[in-house]
Design a protein around this nucleic acid. Sequence first.
DNA 1: ACGAAAAGCTAAACATGTTAATAACAGTGC
DNA 2: GCACTGTTATTAACATGTTTAGCTTTTCGT
Lengths: 150, 150
Amino acid sequence: MGDKRDMKNRLPSTARSLPIALLRARERVMGPIRKLLSDVDLTEQQWRVLRVVQESDGIDPTEIADQACLLLPSLTRILQKLDEKGLISRERDKVDRRRQIIRITAAGEKIIEANIAASIAIVDRTREKMGEERYEALLDLLNDLDEIEL
Amino acid sequence: MGDKRDMKNRLPSTARSLPIALLRARERVMGPIRKLLSDVDLTEQQWRVLRVVQESDGIDPTEIADQACLLLPSLTRILQKLDEKGLISRERDKVDRRRQIIRITAAGEKIIEANIAASIAIVDRTREKMGEERYEALLDLLNDLDEIEL
DNA sequence: ACGAAAAGCTAAACATGTTAATAACAGTGC
DNA sequence: GCACTGTTATTAACATGTTTAGCTTTTCGT
């Protein structure tokens, strides 16, 4: 018979479950950053999008979604919010009119400049606490996992 | 002056950004599982909760939230859904009447039995493709990250 | 040039993430 | 017994995740 205990023990406890371990780790990393951003009324995703836009010189939503790791429907709403807040500008591409060109505004630049240092500090602190080597090893393994099973 | 390029280069590219690497890795792992579960009309979170409940012998929401890595407001809605679907039962604790006791139903057991094997297979396949050692090393590093910066 | 297929984006619907506020109950000190 | 405080769980409000459908524009084959 299909004894319940047989199946239970073949699955990892939550600490050894990869999906949950990834969740917890992400929570640990993003917690402090979220706290920082709430002071300027930005979500973690809005900040990610704003930074991708700032690093480019005019970029379309598809490219933003790819770099910020967001699905297009989510991005659509985020761009609407950022537009309302006056942090980005949107413009139709004159050549391919399906496409939009997103740019950061002066107000957007200002917000980034005001928070980028603290953002970097948080990342640096995590890397130091974990140790440079282990931090880099973790990144390597995560990237490996992402490239697996095409 | 605050040259823009100075700040840009101190932040990692998306591949070397820990938050984004964690996102992508999670997406890669959960994709196949989500596909499996959509056939039985369960979300990834509902499945996680159902399994935690099944592994216990009566458990309260706070404990479920902790083990399934969910916030209580999310869990409240998920338990309502699972209750509507008849997969769990809820009961007030007779001793401490703030507390609830959640149990899995026969229908819930049936769904788990019908899908647990495929679920295990997906995890196993990922571990094999990545290599046992690297897989375990990744889990160790993720757990380390979670324990850091108390 | 024309119609089918594809690309870029948006809308809608439902589920969860996140924070703040609230209700209901339990324990504590007085 | 009563106010005080902490715990458990829910609700509300807003933002995002996820899937499906839809619209507009372009590209391609013929």
